[in-house]
Design a protein around this nucleic acid. Structure first.
Lengths: 340, 340
DNA sequence: CTGTTAGCGCATTCAT
DNA sequence: ATGAATGCGCTAACAG
């Protein structure tokens, strides 16, 4: 059985009142107590192996110093670095994370949020792609700060940390255009998630800025961010427009699916067709060919989101800051000038 | 501000005593209350949007229904599936996870464990490779159940869920032997972590069982499970024993490092040299060549560990069951018969 | 079957 | 500067 040493035990040993122990142990109130007494209390606590029960504390202070983190699926390599960014920053401030995987399932999401609320989390960081907006808005309206990560709301009603999808796609498009490509296709992500939508728009804009056409025939959409969905979308695209020389994919997994499609058709990449991904997932630098992709600062995303949450927590103010982080292009072997 | 609806508010609306509300709301004690009253209470709770404060409950029941999960670094793709296995199983039973990354740093480990203990976690699942054994044993001795994952203690003093490293390496060795290889090297992992140690022993045994020699010259050790450490160890191995035709690596990342070494030397894999990894990490099936590797049931490991913890939690008994899960061999392109 | 009481461990009044 | 008392929200033990 766990033998909890309480503040009362310490008080008994130090020969003071429990209240005094509480004051002596809490840095903020330590000045209220005689230094010698404080010293005695500290020693007693040390000797007894006293460990404050943060749950009991939270009951009193109405703070749990825990934060709920909503992730679609941490098995997706995109998320762990973000989570670490969050953990490292929040950990410095004494917060611990309650992380849950939602699998983008509305039912799971709701029940998880309920459970975390019941655990009195002080706030949420949500990296879920299509989390029920109302649910989150409701939570935020209830006074629990919510920070969005990797997605934003149309109306900007919740603070969010995202990467500039337009800029990222622009980097990709400019790169292949500079290589000499003119007939460029886009394998887009699901259009009901903000990254899929934003990258699609970014593609249209960047093509237009380059003075190139981007007709609907040269754009297909995957219904999920998976290799198989990417393969299917790419097949459809190449069936329709076989003379495309470069493809901008909405993410690395789709890009990998595109490579599968190339293989299936006997298309050599990058000799006959170039491909650019998005995210720079681990190991994509070791694929055949190494994938040219848009890198996003995952860890920083997490850290910035944590910062945002910390200020919300501190000031109690409902800010709705929208932070846009810059992606960078990583050129590898999957892109080259189009065949003469 | 968060406006907490308490059990008292519900009581007022339902016109009963708070104690009755508690009973009506708790499935286990609901039978003690008049069905009609219970109905009234439930409706009141519903109307008010009552959400039980599990922290307050925990204070009373001395249960937090949270579990601490110790991971070296969840950025390592080996761990997320294990974590999901844990979460899914434990979630079914109402537990939420407090996950921390220890970076294999003793200092971080201790402080994290302290923090989690202060948060009254009901138990731990530790996937850390070289966690301070004393720390964990201490915790377990204090009455908080600890389950080890992916590692075990020499003396088996703590329950553990691991894969059979010996068997896994045996599968790898038997495979290359069957292909005709005779001069087989081993790039081992850090010997101070149980997997590194176990796989090394497994290699020696399997070679002996195959009637082959495994002299020390044909074995080198990486000082970490990283690609660069694998590269260095492989370089050393091939400098010493250039006529090796196959290498069994202690894990996939080391195997990838070995491939780097092959590249550097102009050795073609698998034509001139074969390589087998361990873990079957995501994307290793898409490397050049696709990696032959030993797959471990990551998700199951997590689920089984969760089960073990649940029984410990339920019975309060300090079992020390040791569970060994079976690995399987996944044959891909990185192994073939040795050149004539 | 329901009301009452007490107390989990702590922080925070208010007294002294 | 310290002791005493109160209550956070809930459950459990006891009355009735």
């Amino acid at each position: 059985m766990r033998t909890q040493v309480t503040i009362r035990d310490v008080a008994r040993v130090a020969n003071v009142h429990p209240g005094t122990v509480s004051r002596a142990l809490n840095a903020r109130t330590r000045t209220l107590v005689n230094p010698e007494t404080a010293e005695r209390v500290l020693r007693a606590a040390q000797d007894l192996g006293y460990r404050p029960n943060s749950i009991a504390r939270g009951l009193k202070t109405n703070r749990s110093y825990t934060v709920g983190v909503l992730i679609p699926d941490m098995t997706n390599p995109l998320f762990p670095p973000i989570m670490r960014g969050i953990e490292d920053r929040l950990g410095e401030s004494g917060y611990t994370l309650l992380t849950v995987n939602t699998d983008n399932d509305a039912e799971r999401e709701r029940s998880h949020v309920e459970a975390l609320l019941a655990r009195q989390v002080d706030g949420f960081i949500a990296a879920t792609a299509r989390l029920d907006v109302e649910l989150l808005a409701e939570v935020a309206a209830g006074g629990v700060p919510v920070i969005l990560v990797n997605r934003s709301l149309e109306n900007g009603s919740l603070p969010a940390v995202t990467v500039d999808d337009h800029q990222g796609i622009a980097l990709a498009v400019e790169h292949v255009v500079a290589l000499g490509h003119r007939r460029i296709g886009h394998v887009g992500g699901p259009q009901n998630v903000s990254t899929g939508h934003g990258r699609h728009l970014g593609f249209l804009e960047a093509m237009s800025a380059a003075g190139l056409e981007a007709p609907p025939e040269r754009i297909t959409f995957a219904d999920a961010y998976s290799e198989t969905a990417g393969l299917a979308a790419c097949e459809q695209l190449l069936d329709r427009e076989p003379d495309i020389t470069a493809i901008i994919a909405a993410n690395d997994r789709l890009a990998i699916g595109c490579c599968d499609s190339f293989d299936r058709r006997g298309l050599s990449c990058p000799d006959q067709i170039s491909i650019v991904g998005f995210n720079d997932m681990p190991l994509v630098d070791r694929l055949r060919p190494p994938l040219t992709t848009v890198r996003i600062p995952q860890r920083e995303i997490g850290a910035v989101a944590a910062d945002l949450l910390l200020t919300s927590l501190g000031e109690g103010s409902a800010q709705t800051e929208q932070i846009l982080l810059e992606p960078t292009l990583v050129v590898r072997g999957s892109t080259q000038a189009p065949a003469g």
